[in-house]
């Protein structure tokens, strides 16, 4: 490192890597969505439960999509099979959830 400190030339030859920035932005989005969820429950949770639950689920899905796209790299190219596997898993999981809620509550 010390013997070859030729920064400009070196940086040109190396691969281009993504910076920390977009991951920190994803992190800030996650924090904000989490905060919205907690504050909503603490403030209007008992006044308007239906609205709160819908908002909570929207916040959760948004946060999961952001984390999977950026942190799990699912938005990068070459991720067709991972998306197929995950959507397949989610469809089966969602079916199980809808079925058991329907069974018990209707």
């Amino acid at each position: 490192m010390t013997a070859h400190d030729m920064a400009p030339d070196n940086s040109k030859r190396r691969h281009r890597h993504e910076g920390k920035q977009k991951h920190i932005i994803a992190f800030i989005f996650s924090i904000v969505l989490t905060l919205i969820a907690f504050v909503t429950v603490a403030s209007v949770g008992e006044v308007n439960p239906t609205f709160t639950v819908i908002l909570l689920l929207v916040m959760a899905v948004l946060q999961v999509v952001i984390q999977m796209s950026y942190w799990m790299h699912m938005k990068d190219k070459g991720h067709v099979l991972p998306i197929v596997f995950m959507i397949g898993g989610v469809i089966i999981a969602f079916t199980a959830i809808v079925m058991s809620v329907y069974w018990v509550w209707w």
């Binding site: 991972p82 596997f85 995950m86 397949g88 898993g89 089966i92 999981a93 199980a96 959830i97 079925m99």
Partner: peptide, 14 residues
């Protein structure tokens, strides 16, 4: 992980 999603999905369903 697709299988794990199913596993946790069924636990959430329960």
């Amino acid at each position: 992980l697709g299988g794990e999603a199913v596993l946790f999905g069924t636990l959430f369903a329960t």
